[in-house]
């Protein structure tokens, strides 16, 4: 990763110096190795630019605001991020001319909680090589295999293709994507209705309505979210039962249906570890099965099957019956 970071920094410097771009969006060092934050940099200030195995966040959503600003921005996108970028282009939320896209190679990013779970304590410093995270602790050196601490979204990586990129920076070889990313959904589908309801009831009852999933979601870019809209007539409404509040997630899944690229940010940012991505992935699986394979963001301006009527479309009846399986 250090090799990649060096290349990225060189690229950022070169493009800023040449005037090709005015700003760079990337990550900034924090107090520790795993404490990295998205940040923007300019020509005179590339201090603290970092790229390591903890830079797993999808930066695409920041670009909605950045696109409104003057000048051009350099953006480093992992393969999965490029789909979000394309989807935002399709929805006219960003303009391609405002960005210089550098695709960066990826073999997955890490979940610090999974590192802690392996008994890592008293951290002094960290470094990494291709396969391992090397942690110096007060109890001595600890080696954590990267494979063992991947983010959920990286475990079910959908693609290693760059859906969009002006150029790419890849160090070494990218491991192939996971062809079985619908396995977890299939498990849910194989449950009885009662089991499935119990599963979701338990999961969603953990929700504290912090709105992190919505705020991180690159498909949730409404100027005024319906859930924040006082004019909707529901904002001051008391819940009819305790589960009603949790319909937030179901409604959100419908709002992003056909537009969700399966980037996995919703689950990554959830402080309660609710597997929210499974709701969206179920919708994606249903779309694939009913209307043919479709990957949101794979192409700019491809019409999402839910807003594209063709005569070959299945009858609504079949969709409903399929859902009752």
């Amino acid at each position: 990763m250090q090799g990649l970071e060096k290349l990225m920094l060189e690229k950022a410097n070169a493009l800023l110096q040449s005037g090709e771009v005015d700003r760079v969006i990337g990550w900034k060092k924090g107090e520790s190795y795993y404490d990295v934050s998205p940040a923007t940099f300019t020509k005179d200030n590339l201090e603290g630019f970092v790229y390591n195995c903890f830079c797993g966040a999808n930066l695409s959503k920041y670009l909605v605001a950045e696109s409104k600003k003057e000048g051009k921005m350099l953006v480093f996108l992992k393969p999965c991020d490029t789909y979000s970028f394309n989807q935002l282009l399709s929805e006219h939320r960003i303009e391609k001319e405002k960005f210089y896209v550098v695709g960066v190679g990826c073999n997955g990013h890490l979940d610090m909680n999974k590192v802690y779970a392996q008994g890592v304590e008293g951290i002094l410093s960290m470094s990494e090589d291709e396969n391992n995270l090397i942690v110096e602790t007060v109890y001595g050196q600890k080696i954590v295999e990267k494979e063992s601490a991947l983010l959920i979204k990286c475990l079910t990586c959908k693609s290693k293709e760059f859906a969009v990129a002006d150029e790419t920076l890849v160090v070494g070889e990218m491991k192939p994507a996971n062809p079985n990313r619908f396995e977890e959904v299939e498990k849910l589908e194989s449950m009885t209705e009662a089991e499935r309801y119990a599963f979701w009831k338990e999961q969603l009852s953990k929700c504290i309505r912090c709105n992190a999933c919505r705020n991180a979601c690159p498909a949730c870019t409404c100027i005024n979210c319906v859930f924040d809209n006082n004019a909707s007539g529901i904002s001051a409404k008391a819940n009819a039962d305790e589960f009603e509040e949790k319909l937030f997630h179901i409604i959100r899944a419908y709002h992003v249906a056909g537009r969700c690229t399966d980037c996995g940010e919703c689950s990554r940012v959830c402080p309660q570890n609710i597997p929210l991505h499974l709701i969206n992935r179920k919708v994606i699986k249903d779309i694939n099965e009913n209307y043919g394979d479709y990957q949101a963001g794979a192409e700019v301006n491809a019409r999402n099957p839910l807003v594209n009527y063709t005569k070959a479309d299945v009858e609504a009846k079949e969709v409903v019956e399929g859902g009752n399986k």
């Binding site: 929805e91 006219h92 939320r93 409404c222 100027i223 005024n224 999402n304 807003v307 594209n308 009527y309």
Partner: peptide, 21 residues
């Protein structure tokens, strides 16, 4: 217009071509 994001989905589903941006 205060809440429209211009995402174009409405124009895509409109069977009459009534929506422009």
């Amino acid at each position: 217009e205060m809440t429209c994001t211009g995402c174009s989905q409405c124009a895509e589903v409109c069977p009459y071509g009534a929506i422009t941006y």
